[in-house]
């Protein structure tokens, strides 16, 4: 790919980066406790949570496992679990 003049670059191409492989802990949502309030989505630094029809969906392609969602969830519906394949 030819370089753009002046280093100008296209919007939103970070989406190709899989930051999910930085993760040691995976947020797991208890959908029975979750009421889809969206607090976790607001606080997710990695835009890795979607609230879709009141359902909280974690995008594991991007989630870095910081745990803010679990800490801030008002209904304690998210728990951080050790990522499969990670030695603790």
């Amino acid at each position: 790919m030819k370089l753009n003049l002046g280093g100008v670059t296209e919007a939103g191409r970070s989406k190709q980066n899989r930051t999910g492989n930085w993760r040691y802990f995976l947020p797991v949502v208890d959908q029975k406790r979750c009421n889809g309030c969206g607090t976790c989505e607001l606080f997710c630094p990695d835009s890795a949570i979607e609230i879709n029809n009141k359902l909280c969906l974690i995008n594991t392609f991007y989630c870095k496992g910081c745990g803010i969602c679990a800490r801030e969830c008002p209904r304690s519906a998210i728990t951080m679990q050790v990522e499969r394949g990670v030695a603790v």
């Binding site: 002046g6 280093g7 100008v8 670059t9 296209e10 919007a11 939103g12």
Partner: peptide
């Protein structure tokens, strides 16, 4: 046309 200026290289 949202472009990014001043990228890191």
């Amino acid at each position: 046309n949202p472009l990014t200026y001043g990228a890191l290289t």
